[in-house]
Design a protein around this nucleic acid. Structure first.
Lengths: 203, 203
DNA sequence: CGCTATCTGATAGTTCCACTATCTATGATG
DNA sequence: CATCATAGATAGTGGAACTATCAGATAGCG
């Protein structure tokens, strides 16, 4: 990383400035390096924008944020918008919201629909519908939810091992953002395997 | 979507041009609208770049691509690069590749390490290591892999229902790209639930 | 038939983002 | 003490994804 880039991150509020020891000399310590690694992981692996990382580190640095907000902070900024194509102004999205609300209810989850995560799910489901896969939810959503619950449980257990709050918060962020990347890659590997079993070698 | 944007997609090779009926008139049919929905879903929900979408539709349109390459095409272009921070030129990455190779071996998966998916996983694991979560793999990787296998199985079963090759290929792409978004959102919802159970309401 | 609104294809511009380069003042270092 | 490096500030660069403008042509209306 170039010095110029680091200064850019300082300007953007991702990284605290070094301790000034003289007008042209500042000292940086291990915490700066750690933060820098976190930033790079978020940007490179998690695919977050600089603006998103700023929100996340603001949450990490604020000792008053409740944990559930932390859990949100990382993920809420990866989520994109989706508009649909053509004249259906959002019929699919409206329907998808209902599907999601039903799922949340059926699972006994306590997040109220309308939360960023629920909305993100609705957006993705609506996109599937618009693309001709309206049967996706009934076909696989439950299995997905099962797997997600499983993954979430080990995530939270893993995270809970870090007692110090600062550690906890950082691992939550890392787990949320990079965990997505880990799972996506694993899913790909498993796809290859499963398709080999179902379809054989060719086709 | 503006006309200008659609023309831009045509220029970029994401969308076939309309059938020219006169020098200043072209006709577009349902297939163009379908393709357009697919493009928007990839870009907005899947987070793919225009260049990545071009690769994907090239694969979709080529009847000679084997299915396993299709499975790759969509996912391989979502994957980012990761360099690490500072002087460790890639120790973590080297170690992560070994971890991943062992996992693949242990699972009896047939994808050779070095495949894009395996490399993506290694990159993500290396990022975790660099950020101070080197214990993540042993703590949760197996559970992740279990969940990924489960998800992949229902994915492939779902996809296999589409007999026509064109349909099959499109659903593979959709399932890969948008499925990631669906699962990520579900994981977030499940996180909220699990953390409520483990940590209680506050902290 | 004439006129104007609309469409096509081509080209050039715009906006945003993530950096990167340059500049000045100042202090570190051999 | 001469040179080199660094802080901070500001301006510039390059790429990505559009977006606006223009010329040529014609569809459709009166």
């Amino acid at each position: 990383m170039s010095v110029a880039t680091i200064k850019y991150y300082v300007r953007e509020g991702l990284l605290p400035a070094g301790q000034l020891t003289s007008p042209n000399q500042a000292s940086y310590d291990e915490s700066h390096v750690r933060r820098l690694r976190l930033i790079r992981a978020m940007i490179d692996v998690g695919g977050l924008s600089v603006a998103a990382v700023r929100e996340v580190v603001a949450a990490v640095d604020d000792p008053d944020r409740p944990l559930h907000e932390m859990l949100g902070a990382a993920a809420d900024y990866v989520v994109p918008r989706y508009e649909g194509v053509g004249d259906e102004p959002g019929d699919a999205l409206v329907a998808a919201r209902v599907t999601v609300a039903e799922l949340i209810d059926r699972r006994g989850w306590h997040s109220h629909p309308g939360s960023p995560a629920a909305e993100a799910l609705a957006v993705a489901v609506a996109a599937l519908e618009n693309v001709g896969h309206g049967d996706f939810p009934e076909a696989v959503l439950e299995a997905y939810a099962d797997a997600a619950e499983r993954v979430a449980r080990v995530d939270v257990d893993y995270v809970a091992k870090n007692v110090a709050r600062e550690e906890l918060v950082a691992s939550v962020v890392v787990g949320t953002v990079i965990g997505d990347a880990v799972f996506a890659a694993l899913r790909r590997l498993a796809h290859i395997e499963a398709s080999k079993q179902v379809f054989g070698l060719d086709r």
